[in-house]
């Protein structure tokens, strides 16, 4: 699957790596979504976020999303990289990069990928506040 790059890692995610993977002479645009750790949630100050994953399944589900994105939209390449472990404010938990001949498909595929990731990929984050911690979305 040379058009798909999937990664789940405790290392720092690299924008360059995602960009370079999807870059291609036939593409006319690259769309990149970068998730960042926000310093507040519902009015409370967040200190850090702890991401844990069901690794093998998370990778499979990210592969499924990438395959679907290539099938559904007129795009060339896609990279979906997700971090695990403890992340600080401003750190990057997720990068999605998509290249396409034309920009509309790249935007659509990128949005599809991040929206689906948030619904199906078995990764969980725990928000750490100064007075405790809570699993995000555990009681929807």
């Amino acid at each position: 699957m040379s058009n798909i790059s999937i990664k789940l890692t405790t290392d720092k995610l690299s924008l360059d790596e995602c960009y370079n993977f999807v870059d291609d002479p036939t593409c006319g645009g690259i769309d990149i979504f970068v998730g960042t750790v926000r310093n507040h949630t519902k009015g409370k100050k967040v200190k850090k976020l702890d991401f844990s994953a069901y690794g093998p399944m998370a990778i499979k589900e990210m592969e499924l999303i990438a395959e679907k994105a290539l099938e559904k939209f007129d795009v060339l390449k896609i990279a979906i990289h997700h971090a695990e472990g403890m992340l600080q404010i401003g750190d990057i938990p997720v990068i999605i990069a998509v290249s396409a001949a034309h920009r509309v498909a790249a935007f659509e595929a990128c949005q599809f990928a991040i929206d689906t990731l948030k619904e199906t990929v078995p990764i969980w984050k725990k928000e750490h506040f100064s007075d405790g911690e809570v699993w995000v979305n555990a009681h929807p």
Partner: peptide, 10 residues
């Protein structure tokens, strides 16, 4: 078998 509570990645 894995028990998957509501996911919150991204």
């Amino acid at each position: 078998i894995a028990i998957i509570p509501p996911v919150s990645g991204g």
